[in-house]
């Protein structure tokens, strides 16, 4: 299945958002997620199925002003 992760094309077999994070080895990392522009809480990732064309954002803390 073809999706986008952080703006880049990404092929995945992951069925849900939690599985995708694990596939990217970010399952245990300090991250937050969004799917198609909407925030997905960590507790809802496993219950968020992925579909072809989904646009996923995976973010982490960064320096800011």
């Amino acid at each position: 299945m073809q999706i986008r992760v952080n703006g880049e094309p990404h092929a995945t077999e992951a069925g849900d958002l939690a599985a995708l994070c694990a596939e990217l080895e970010l399952g245990d990392a300090k991250i937050a997620t969004a799917r198609n522009g909407d925030f997905v809480p960590a507790s809802s990732r496993a219950a968020t199925p992925l579909q072809t064309g989904d646009e996923i954002e995976i973010v982490a803390p960064r320096q800011g002003g």
């Binding site: 080895e25 970010l26 991250i31 995976i58 002003g65």
Partner: peptide, 10 residues
């Protein structure tokens, strides 16, 4: 302290 968030590369 102000902080931000940005896309995380695996």
């Amino acid at each position: 302290l102000t902080v931000s968030l940005r896309r995380e590369s695996a």
